[in-house]
């Protein structure tokens, strides 16, 4: 088994009603439960705040608010175990982020 990072990117704005917010969250919980039941979760990972800074150094030092567009914003990440990249990608397909207009970036984790 190899390890992969799921980077959750972008997605629609928040739903307006508490009931819809809860519905969205329950979809995520159900998805994680399914992954966990099948033994694919290595680390649930962390959610990331939408604010932040992009720091560059070199000839021109800069700390900016981050030039990323909403749609590219990484809002969280999870570490999963899968056979290979194809398998990991397939595992990501039921992720609720697709219904929210976002995507999952699947990246192999380099290990010793």
């Amino acid at each position: 088994m190899a390890q992969f990072a799921f980077l959750y990117r972008g997605g629609d704005p928040m739903p307006a009603s508490p009931a819809q917010m809860q519905q969205r969250m329950e979809k995520w919980l159900a998805w994680f439960k399914d992954l966990a039941d099948k033994g694919h979760i290595k680390d649930r990972g962390v959610p990331l705040d939408r604010s932040g800074a992009v720091v560059t150094r070199g000839p021109k030092h800069a700390i900016t608010d981050g030039p990323y567009a909403e749609k590219d914003l990484v809002i969280g990440l999870t570490v999963v175990e899968a056979r290979d990249l194809a398998h990991a990608s397939e595992l990501s397909l039921p992720c609720p982020i697709f219904e929210q207009g976002g995507c999952v970036e699947v990246r192999p984790i380099l290990t010793l």
Partner: peptide, 14 residues
């Protein structure tokens, strides 16, 4: 607070 909960709980659990 609800937005924060949605983003955090979705990944970390309740």
């Amino acid at each position: 607070a609800l937005c924060r909960a949605l983003e955090t709980w979705s990944i970390r659990g309740i």
